[in-house]
Design a protein around this nucleic acid. Structure first.
Lengths: 265, 265
DNA sequence: GTTGTTTATATGGTAAGACCATTTGCTGAT
DNA sequence: ATCAGCAAATGGTCTTACCATATAAACAAC
C-alpha cells in the first residue's frame, strides 16, 4: 500500500453530545446573539433542533446553569432564561476555591491590604461624583455608630464595598467582595469579644477618623495620603487586638497573619 | 379549628434530584472524605445508592465536572475521578468572565500593575531560596535573548509567573496568570510591529535590566526598591510604544490605557 | 516463553418514550 | 366582576434498551 507521508492527523477525540450543545449555546451567549433575558426554546424543541435526546440537552443546560448563565423555571412561560452575568454570581467559583482549600484565609488576609490599595488608587482615577456622595452618606452613618460595634462592622463593609465600586474595576470589586465577606466579621467579632467597651469605642473612633481621611483623600485625588491612610487603617486592625486572641501571630517579615494550620494541606 | 400563631414555615422550594446529588458529592470532596485521585462508584451504582435514575446522576456529574472537580473517562477502570483543584483549572471561570465582557482588557491592564506590586511585596516576605534560583535561571536566559524579541516576550511571561509563584499567594498567582496570558502578547507583538529593530533591542535591554533589579531587590528583601523598579518597568511598556499604534490613549489622571469601546457594553 | 489476537466485561454515552409536577392562562359558570 | 376548574406548556423524572470504548483476561500462533 502506498503511504502519503505528508498527511497528518489530529487526535480523534470524540466529544459528548452535551458538550457540543453546551458550546453552541455558550458561544451564542458570548457573542451576544443571546442576550440576558432571552428565553431558550423548550427542551423538547432544543432536542429537535440539535437532533439529540432530551437527556443530552438537559446535561448541557445543567452545565450552563452551573456557569451561572441560565436561570431555569418550570410551568407555562417557564424555561431557560439567559442571565446577565453579575459579579455576584462570578464570585461563586472563587468562593468554592476557598471551600476546597485552594485559597486559605491567610491568603485572603494577606491579599486584603494590597487589594484595598489597588482600589484606592484606581478609585482616585475613576471615581465619579456619585461615588463620593455614596461614600459621604456611609461616613455619616459611620460617625453616628461609633458606640455600636455591630453597626460599625456592617458600615465598615459598606464603606470598603463602595470604595471598591468607585474603582470601577471588576477585579477590585470581585476580590473585595470575597475578602470582606470572609474576613470582616472575623476581626470585629473577635475584637469585640476580647476588649473592654471603652477600648472598643476607641478603636471605632480611630477607624472612623481613618475612613474619613480615606474619603477626603479620594475627593482630593491625593494618592500619597490615600496610601498612607490605608496603611494606618490596616495597622489599626492589629494594633488594638491582642494577636493571641485572634489566633494571629506575627511572622518573621513583620506582618501579622493567621497561623497556617499545616503547609501540607 | 385552632391555629397555632407561633409556628412559621419556610418556602417549600423543591430541589432537583441532580442538585441534591451534586451537593452530597460536593460536600464529600470539600470535607476531604473524597480526595483527589479517588474514584466514584459507577453511574449505575450511584443511581442505586442515591435511589435515583441514571440521567439524574449524570446531570449531577456534569455539574461537578463543570466545577473542574471530576475527570471522567470511559471503559473498564474508567469512571469519575476526583481531581485535585489546581489553580489552572480555577482560572477557567475567570476567563469566562472575560469572554462574557464582565471583565474587559482595560480592567486587566489597569489591575496588572497593582497585582505585580502585590506579588512583589508578598514575594519579599515569603520567597524561598528555590524561588530565587528559578528566577536567576530565567534572568540568565533573559540576558541572552535581548536580540530576540519573540523569546524575550516568552521569558518575560516566565519571569512574572515565577515572581507570582514566589509570593506563594494563590490570588496573586491566579490573577497574574489571567492578566499575563491575555495582555502580554498584546504589548510585545504590537510593539515589535511598530518599532525599528534598534529601538526594539533598546527596549529589551532596558526591560532586562529592570527585571534584574527586581530580582536583586527580591534577594535583598528591599521593598522600597522593588516598588520603584516595578513602577519603572510598567512605564517602560508605554514610554517606548507609540500609544496611537497600541490603540491606547492617555487618560486624564495621567495613566495610559486602552480605549474603552463603550461604557454601555 | 513470547507475542499477537480475540473475547469478555465493565464503564460511560445515547436514545426513546412515558409519566408526573408545576405554572399559567383561558373559559365558563355564578 | 369573580372565582373555580380545566387545558396546555414546560421542566422533572424514571425506565429500558442499546451503542461505544477501554481494559483485562483468555487464548492462539509462533
Amino acid at each position: 500500500m502506498s503511504e502519503n507521508r505528508s498527511v497528518s492527523f489530529t487526535p480523534a477525540q470524540t466529544k459528548r453530545a452535551s458538550e457540543v450543545i453546551y458550546e453552541q449555546i455558550y458561544q451564542k451567549i458570548v457573542s451576544g446573539e443571546l442576550k440576558p433575558g432571552d428565553r431558550l426554546p423548550a427542551e423538547r424543541e432544543l432536542a429537535e433542533q440539535f437532533r439529540r435526546s432530551r437527556p443530552s440537552i438537559r446535561e448541557a443546560l445543567r452545565m450552563l446553569q452551573q456557569d451561572g448563565l441560565l436561570e431555569i423555571t418550570v410551568g407555562t412561560n417557564g424555561g431557560a432564561i439567559v442571565r446577565g452575568v453579575s459579579l455576584a454570581s462570578a464570585a461563586q467559583p472563587l468562593r468554592k476555591l476557598v471551600d476546597l482549600g485552594a485559597i486559605t484565609i491567610n491568603d485572603l488576609v494577606d491579599y486584603r491590604a494590597y487589594n484595598e490599595r489597588s482600589c484606592g488608587e484606581l478609585a482616585i482615577r475613576y471615581r465619579t461624583d456619585q461615588d463620593i456622595r455614596t461614600l459621604e452618606e456611609i461616613m455619616e452613618r459611620y460617625h453616628a455608630a461609633v458606640y455600636d460595634s455591630e453597626t460599625v462592622s456592617k458600615v465598615d463593609i459598606e464603606f470598603h464595598t463602595a470604595m471598591a465600586n468607585a474603582s470601577h474595576n471588576p477585579l477590585c470589586i470581585l476580590i473585595n467582595d470575597i475578602v470582606t465577606t470572609l474576613c470582616a466579621n472575623l476581626f470585629w467579632g473577635i475584637a469585640a469579644d476580647n476588649m473592654t467597651s471603652e477600648k472598643v469605642i476607641e478603636v471605632n473612633r480611630r477607624a472612623c477618623a481613618c475612613h474619613q481621611q480615606m474619603l477626603d483623600a479620594l475627593i482630593a485625588r491625593d494618592l500619597e495620603t490615600m496610601n498612607k491612610v490605608i496603611q494606618v487603617n490596616m495597622d489599626l486592625y492589629f494594633d488594638f487586638v491582642d494577636p493571641s486572641h485572634l489566633k494571629v501571630s506575627a511572622d518573621p517579615a513583620g506582618m501579622h497573619r493567621f497561623d497556617r494550620p499545616s503547609d501540607g494541606l
